[in-house]
Design a protein around this nucleic acid. Structure first.
Lengths: 233, 233
DNA sequence: AAGTGGTCTAGACCACTTG
DNA sequence: AAGTGGTCTAGACCACTTG
């Protein structure tokens, strides 16, 4: 699959920001200059810039220019925290049980989530994270093997998938979906729920510079878990 | 100020969805047909469609077509949005029913949430917000009467409590707690749930410069509502 | 083969900001 | 006046889905 031109340009811009070539508030070249540099039409350069503006990476002002956005823009509510760090920071015991670590064939849904083709092979891990010997999170994760070829060789009792993935493929973007759901019977069993209870599910797609790295579903018993956030205006 | 063409086309599409001309999953005219109908280039029609896809109003599939998205709602975690604006921005019908509007005596929990004394009088409103004639949010709100003495005189069919409070006591801070819970029997009835289902509950304390303004509990059926968020690093 | 959306071009004119 | 982003055109070729 050939990467679209506008995606390549986005990637180059992100790279320059990540490596510090362009710091916060740096003024970007104009759209005409970007078009010339990347040998494309202005409309294509503009699309790359527009999407990075939508993502909060850049900011535009008519008649003035385009700038690298500040880093402390929004992310206060849902920072991606490592589950083991979070549990440990509460002064509680953390442990993990590996339920599965294998390959799977991507169905339509998984293929769409990982931006790959239906029928391609993906890596899959299923882990149960414990706080003080009670299950807190059931993590079902699909990983793009092109991005992370060594995934199946990892020892997730030493570091969580999130920790490992952050190391080998630094995050550039993440998309969350937060829902309430009733667990299936097998999930009730895995999470050791005494009675049926509502669960909080977070679905998360994460990107590194090269594309979608992973798609994870995190299920938490409603009685043991909540999300908190503080906003200031 | 003259409205841009693509914005006009967006407005027309939303109108047709709001008036029910195009129901859920209705297939839209192709981009070429839209361009002809609105007498513009395909790129301009496409821009209108793209932005409505980004907003979750439409869904596209290459080779197949563009469709009106389902009711399953998306809401942003990162910003406090007005529920009525959010529903309207999806091109859906909004309405509200007032269940209660009265004074209450603060018990221990409410007093703590509003930073007032136990036994003091507070204002209380209970509203049900509808999206397309289905309940989407049950809003139970306690208000500090010192901050907002006119609260009980408001007509919440005209503007939501959030809208009114933002107007009279501009927000400076907000704290959220997001949980999954099972609804009580009366909540099942109020939310018109056919079967028991998990609900997403957001508890929110809001501050203006003078102190705590309000404490609200927002309950949403899990099948009709989720939160979404996008982070960039 | 025909129709759909996905990407891209090489222009154009406009609104806005600054020198 | 010159440079910036904002909107728009009238095409083109592509990838994907369906008959």
């Amino acid at each position: 699959m050939i990467r679209a031109k506008f995606a390549t340009i986005k990637q180059h811009i992100i790279e320059r920001i990540e490596t510090g070539v362009w710091g916060e508030q740096t003024k970007l070249p104009s759209e005409n200059q970007l078009a010339e540099e990347f040998d494309c039409s202005r409309m294509t350069a503009r699309r790359a810039v527009t999407e990075l503006c939508d993502a909060g990476v850049l900011e535009r002002s008519q008649g003035i220019g385009t700038f690298v956005a500040g880093l402390n823009s929004q992310s206060s509510v849902l920072t991606i925290r490592n589950i083991s760090d979070e549990i440990k920071s509460r002064g509680h015991g953390y442990s993990v049980m590996q339920l599965e670590l294998t390959t799977k064939v991507a169905d339509r849904e998984i293929a769409a989530a990982l931006s790959i083709g239906v029928g391609e092979t993906v890596f899959y891990s299923e882990l149960l994270h414990y706080e003080q010997d009670e299950p807190l999170q059931l993590e079902c994760r699909y990983v793009n093997p092109k991005m992370v070829p060594e995934y199946l060789q990892q020892d997730f009792s030493q570091r969580t998938p999130h920790e490992y993935l952050s190391y080998v493929a630094p995050l550039t973007q993440a998309h969350h979906k937060i829902q309430a759901m009733l667990p299936s019977l097998s999930q009730v069993h895995q999470l050791e729920l005494r009675t049926i209870e509502a669960c909080l599910m977070i679905s998360r797609r994460t990107w590194s510079r090269q594309g979608v790295v992973s798609f994870a579903t995190l299920i938490h018993p409603g009685s043991r878990f909540h999300l908190g956030g503080h906003l200031t205006f």
